[in-house]
């Protein structure tokens, strides 16, 4: 293991023209776009979509899953977000986009077990076709899209991380998502509308 200084020096050299090579995934939505609609099966067997939330002020849509250690680190924070914001009109909607053939821990049956164990008070829906993850441009778990109720449907207000502190590490903590929800509820502009965090790649179906 070598020092952080060495690595920072190395990373500093990595500027310049970049070419992206990923599995040709669509870009998905941007902040300000209309939120793509969907209807997917919840762990209780009911079908849940954005229509289900038409009497709310917004929705915290979180692409997450059972298996990912980063998603697990954030599980209790997602529960706390729902506790804090559902009463204010912005509930959590959790959605698992992983292919259980690639990641067996993320099967619909195991989603039910997780929701029961953790006592999820929000829907945990299964994006079996992965079309919803593709339409939003979700790439990792957890990956958050904050949606605001519009005249018709919802608009995307914020895309990215829950906070900047997955490990509860020492150092400053920036609660990006809470800040965004607070501003949205106040009717104020959101200062930081897109953020990034480390996470597990979404387990796409193999062709």
């Amino acid at each position: 293991m070598i020092s952080r200084e060495y690595l920072v020096g190395l990373l500093a050299l990595m500027f310049s023209v970049s070419m992206m090579f990923s599995a040709d995934l669509p870009d998905g939505v941007k902040v300000g776009d209309k939120a793509p609609d969907f209807f997917l099966t919840n762990v209780d067997g009911q079908s849940v979509g954005l229509e289900t939330f038409k009497s709310t002020k917004g929705v915290i849509l979180v692409f997450t899953c059972n298996h990912c250690p980063y998603a697990i680190k954030y599980q209790d924070r997602i529960i706390a977000l729902h506790e804090k914001y559902a009463a204010k009109g912005v509930p959590v909607l959790a959605i698992n986009p992983n292919d259980p053939n690639v990641s067996p821990e993320d099967s619909y049956e195991k989603m039910k077990v997780r929701a029961e164990e953790k006592g999820f008070k929000f829907p945990y829906i299964f994006d079996e076709t992965q079309k919803t993850a593709l339409s939003y441009g979700a790439r990792r778990t957890p990956h958050v899209f904050l949606l605001k109720k519009a005249k018709t449907g919802f608009t995307v207000e914020y895309i990215g991380a829950i906070d900047d502190n997955a490990n509860d590490a020492a150092g400053g903590e920036e609660t990006f998502l809470s800040n965004a929800v607070d501003k949205m509820l106040e009717g104020q502009p959101i200062a930081v509308t897109t953020t990034k965090a480390i996470g597990c790649s979404i387990k796409w179906k193999k062709d």
Binding site: L11, R140, K196, S201
Partner: peptide
């Protein structure tokens, strides 16, 4: 730092 490494990186590994 994710953007410093590459602006196209979502953060997924």
């Amino acid at each position: 730092w994710i953007n410093r490494i590459d602006s196209t990186w979502s953060g997924a590994i």
